[in-house]
Design a protein around this nucleic acid. Structure first.
Lengths: 170, 170
DNA sequence: CGGCAATTGTTGTCGTCAACAACAATCTTT
DNA sequence: AAAGATTGTTGTTGACGACAACAATTGCCG
């Protein structure tokens, strides 16, 4: 739907112009505003894309009220039962302080449980509850649907290439 | 004074061989924790990449104390002098409420100025100051250096392909 | 023309998220 | 046993997005 097609190449933006004292400048239509140097910055494109992708994820999983970070936490715990909070935080690049609240929330929803480790009484071993496992299965189906939205947006081909390019960051 | 010195240390390509002694279940080394379904999710890869890219941007432009959003605002104003706040906000996908603070900050640093529009007394025409223009030139050089870091990280080829894939989001 | 709706900038609130600091309980090292 | 490191926790700060309310101003429509 986003018919923004900015191929128009506006040339009015290449040299700095100063209208000394002249406050009211020319009139710009909404989509003829040049981005200048921003085009060609990977960070800008990635950020916009990331916002889009997260919004779609949140919307697609709105029924089950699961956000991307919660999903990632449950996925990792599901694949590696018994991990400590430290290990999960490190693996996902989350602050361990932040993980505390994430787990508080998931635990209060009976999706995850903290079990006191016997070998290290400081740490907790993280597990999915039975209901957490079945819930995760559903989340994964919805996440797959979200992933199809991504395909529709950028193309199957491009999505796969993207995953290859960014494989090192996972 | 937002001197946050990000050393977030997402150890992505490096494997720091640390023991995570969780006792309850199996023993996991830090980098042998599976991500399961997370691999194959574009959103996860994009998010990690975006975090990396922003941290590098912030670090590379730390000397001039310019963050990605500030850079994008100045770039757009520099390329389209006289834009209203509404127009800039819409173009960059920023809340206009948020842009107020961004401009307050940039204006107090004499990089940007708000000039009362004569044709619409509600709106401000945004311009770079003279010092803002020279500053932006420097920012762009540093941003280009940052972009080279991205190339080193994912490869020149891949960076260009990425920009092509995500061109629709700019 | 006059009144009403829409727009613009602004202020403020709320919630998410990353970075840090401090702390008690508990290992680990020496 | 003492010193130092690690784990989970609490709390603070700051960047950021989403909203809501508001005054000033503009545009529209009858």
């Amino acid at each position: 739907m986003s018919e923004r097609t900015n191929q128009g190449e506006i040339d009015i933006a290449t040299s700095p112009r100063k209208r000394t004292g002249n406050g009211a400048a020319r009139h710009h239509d909404a989509d003829e505003i040049g981005l200048d140097a921003l085009v060609g910055h990977a960070g800008y494109a990635v950020r916009r894309f990331q916002i889009w992708i997260f919004q779609d994820f949140i919307k697609t999983l709105a029924d089950v009220d699961i956000r991307p970070t919660q999903y990632s936490v449950m996925t990792v715990i599901g694949a590696n039962p018994g991990l400590s909070q430290m290990a999960v935080a490190k693996r996902l690049g989350i602050e361990r302080a932040r993980l505390v609240h994430l787990l508080d929330s998931l635990e209060s929803r009976r999706l995850v449980k903290r079990i006191k480790s016997k070998t290290d009484r400081r740490s907790h071993a993280l597990h999915l509850t039975a209901q957490g496992e079945t819930a995760l299965a559903k989340f994964k189906r919805l996440a797959a649907e979200h992933e199809r939205h991504v395909e529709e947006k950028i193309g199957k081909e491009n999505r796969e290439h993207l995953l290859r390019i960014l494989a090192g960051f996972t």
